[in-house]
Each structure stands twice: as structure tokens, then as C-alpha cells.
């Protein structure tokens, strides 16, 4: 009976315990969700805070002056630095070092070389009298050499300075470019904001106008529903009332501004206005001004 043999072997079910564990996991998750996930209301609801705005906040337009100031700030540092490269060439004038401004630097370097020669006092004297001495000539030569060396040094320094300055300038230009970009971006953003705000304002105005129209229609409809029309009036008489309202929809005063010519119709409308007493008003109290003095026109036939 091979069939039976086949039947008995290999009926082990795969992952029996794994599925049990998974089922357990599902329930633990479900319970955890119920216990922790839903915060079953334990606290009373907190009070609300309402900000009242008299008008929409205007888009900020200050940034522009800041933007114009920044470039001017950025330029000055470069200007004081520029003169320096132009100054240095002066030292090349060889013979009158003491009279010129650069006295300080040659003096500092000359002393070590003068010492071998003789004394410090003697140096000015020979120049004042005549210049016969070899020593003087030597001195001059040495001085000239020194000056040349110094000039070279200065030139090198100059070159270095110029290189540095170039780098600085490049950096500055980069900075300037970045700043410009930033400004442009800020400008674009500001423009977008302004446009957005304007659109919002327009939308708000439209909405307000729509609201007012809606409530006026509602008021008229309410009054109309309360009118007990006198029967059989000829034509389509029109009556106009001036109604003064209180906030909340109460009626302060009703005045006949234009009679229809049929006192029955006039009084019916007046009664209807009083009957529809809390007139529907928009919930926004700012709109009440539109409703304070209402002109109500009622046609006998619509």
C-alpha cells in the first residue's frame, strides 16, 4: 500500500510555531495601539486663543536699504589698500633718503654698516663740508648698494603685496557676486511675497464682498418670507425702507423712505421687517458697518 505510506510521511506543517508567534505579535500590537495609541480623552479641552487683526500684516520692505549699504561697505576696504602699491616706487630715488618719508627704514638698516667705518657723529660732518675722502665715497657706494638691495626687497614685497591684494580682490569680487545673488534672490522672494499678499488681499476683498451680498440676500429673503401680501394690487408697486440695525441683528429703527402708494402693502412690509427681527448678519463683526443702515427695497411681484 504505497499510497498509505505516501499519505503518512511528510505531512509536517511548515512554521506552525512561527505563525503562532506572529499571531501573538499581532495581538500585542493591537492592544498596544488601543492602550497607548488612542489617548482616551482625560483632560478637558484647553481654551482657545484668538488673535484679532485689524488688517492684514504688510509685507516687510526694509531689506532694500541694507542691500544698498552692503556694497558700499564692501568697497572701502579695497580703496585704502590700493594707495600702498603706488607709494613704494618712491624709495627708488636713491640719494635723498633722509629728507623723504622713508627715513625710518634706511636708518634702521644703515647703522650696522656704519659701525665698521667709524662713528656715528662723523657721518653728517663730511657731507656738509666737502666730499674728498675715499671713505665718503665708499660710504656712498655702500649706501647706494644698500638702497638698491632695499629697493629690490621693497619691490619683492610689493609684488607679494600686489599678489595678495589680487587674491583679496578676487575673493571680494566673489563675495560681491554672492551678495548680489543673495540680494536678487531676496528681491525675488520679496516680490513673490508681495504678489502673494496682494492676491490674498484681493481674494479677501472679493470674499468680503461676496459675504456681504450673501447676507443682504438672506435678509431680504427672510423679510420676504414674513410678508403677508395684500391681495390683488395692480401693477408691481415698489416700497423702500431705511432700516437701522444693531449689532446682533436687532432692529433699531425702520423708516419708510419711498412709499409704494398702497398703504396696505407698505404696512405689510413694515410688519414683516419687524417680524424677521434677528436679521441674519455675518458672524464677522467687522462687516457690521455694511449693515448698519440698510436700504430695503421690496417689489410686490418678484
Amino acid at each position: 500500500m504505497s499510497i498509505n505510506v505516501l499519505h503518512f510521511h511528510s505531512y509536517s506543517e511548515p512554521k506552525k510555531f512561527l505563525s503562532g508567534a506572529l499571531a501573538l505579535l499581532m495581538h500585542i500590537m493591537f492592544i498596544a495601539m488601543m492602550v497607548f495609541g488612542l489617548s482616551w480623552k482625560n483632560q478637558p479641552p484647553e481654551g482657545m486663543i484668538v488673535d484679532l487683526w485689524s488688517e492684514l500684516p504688510k509685507p516687510v520692505q526694509e531689506p532694500e536699504p541694507v542691500a544698498s549699504r552692503e556694497p558700499s561697505k564692501a568697497i572701502p576696504p579695497s580703496e585704502p589698500l590700493k594707495p600702498k602699491p603706488i607709494e613704494p616706487p618712491k624709495p627708488e630715488v636713491p640719494i635723498k633718503p633722509e629728507s623723504s618719508k622713508q627715513t625710518t627704514s634706511p636708518k634702521e638698516i644703515t647703522p650696522p654698516i656704519k659701525k665698521p667705518d667709524i662713528e656715528l657723529k662723523q657721518k653728517p660732518e663730511p657731507i656738509k663740508e666737502i666730499k674728498p675722502n675715499l671713505e665718503d665715497l665708499k660710504k656712498k657706494e655702500i649706501e647706494e648698494r644698500l638702497k638698491k638691495i632695499e629697493a629690490q626687497k621693497k619691490e619683492q614685497e610689493l609684488e607679494k603685496k600686489q599678489a595678495l591684494e589680487k587674491q583679496k580682490e578676487i575673493e571680494k569680487q566673489k563675495e560681491l557676486a554672492a551678495q548680489k545673488q543673495k540680494e536678487q534672490e531676496a528681491k525675488a522672494r520679496r516680490d513673490a511675497e508681495a504678489r502673494h499678499a496682494a492676491a490674498q488681499q484681493v481674494a479677501a476683498r472679493n470674499q468680503i464682498a461676496g459675504e456681504i451680498a450673501k447676507y443682504k440676500a438672506m435678509i431680504l429673503a427672510k423679510i420676504r418670507s414674513r410678508i403677508v401680501m395684500p391681495p390683488d394690487l395692480p401693477g408691481n408697486p415698489v416700497v423702500e425702507f431705511k432700516v437701522t440695525l444693531l449689532p446682533g441683528g436687532d432692529i433699531l429703527d425702520v423708516k419708510l423712505s419711498k412709499s409704494s402708494g398702497y398703504s396696505a402693502f407698505d404696512s405689510a412690509v413694515e410688519r414683516a421687517i419687524f417680524l424677521s427681527k434677528p436679521l441674519p448678519l455675518p458672524p464677522d463683526p467687522a462687516l457690521f458697518n455694511e449693515f448698519r443702515n440698510l436700504n430695503i427695497t421690496v417689489h410686490y411681484r418678484e
Binding site: P14, K16, L18, S19, G20, L22, A23
Partner: peptide, 14 residues
């Protein structure tokens, strides 16, 4: 619920 989930997983594997 536990039993049904157990069978669901078992059957899934089978």
C-alpha cells in the same frame, strides 16, 4: 481572534 490569526499565518505558509 488569536486562533484565527494563528490559522491565517499557518495557511499563509502552507
Amino acid at each position: 481572534s488569536f486562533l484565527s490569526w494563528w490559522h491565517i499565518f499557518r495557511k499563509l505558509f502552507v
